[in-house]
């Protein structure tokens, strides 16, 4: 089965029911995506599939034939990532960091379809991503700031 991983075509021949999360970590050494709950509740494992955030812990690799998967490792090379990184740093959005790869994916997924989100849109956009440190306000602020400072990127 062929799909795109971080902008490169790859061939996968293992178990099609294997979770994308495990494939990324075991087969490709991509560790940014974390397993939090393992059942789609926490968003720590989120990646982008065709530009939209998806929980990799409840996605079977076999469903991804021909799809474009981007993990944080790949996304890091983009200008959009830089804007988010800077805004997250400035707003103090990162504490322990466990949820952040998923948060970044959720933010990208939101901003790509809604470049000028309201605070409510942002809260909705990250509503599937749990953070146990920040209380969310700084993360919301980070996304807001990225949208503002990175105007035109999305």
């Amino acid at each position: 089965m062929v799909f795109t991983l971080n902008y490169k075509a790859v061939k996968y021949e293992g178990d099609p029911s294997k979770r994308l999360l495990d494939v990324l970590r075991d087969d490709y050494g991509l560790m940014e995506q974390k397993e939090g709950c393992g059942e789609g509740e926490c968003g720590a494992c989120a990646v982008l599939i065709n530009g939209r955030s998806v929980n990799s812990c409840i996605t079977a690799i076999g469903s991804l034939a021909g799809k474009e998967v981007v993990t944080l490792e790949g996304y890091r090379s983009t200008k959009q990532y830089k804007a988010l990184e800077e805004a997250f740093a400035k707003s103090g959005a990162v504490q322990c960091g466990f949820c952040i790869p998923g948060m970044i994916m959720a933010a990208e997924s939101l901003l790509s379809s809604n470049p000028n989100p309201s605070e409510a849109d942002i809260r909705e956009g990250i509503s599937g991503n749990l953070c146990r440190c920040t209380g969310y306000n700084m993360i919301v602020e980070g996304v807001q700031m990225a949208a503002k400072e990175g105007k035109g990127l999305w």
């Binding site: 599939i49 939209r52 998806v54 929980n55 996605t59 959720a106 956009g125 599937g128």
Partner: peptide, 9 residues
């Protein structure tokens, strides 16, 4: 239903 990442699939 759930949250955006779930609604995306």
């Amino acid at each position: 239903i759930a949250a955006p990442s779930i609604r995306n699939t």
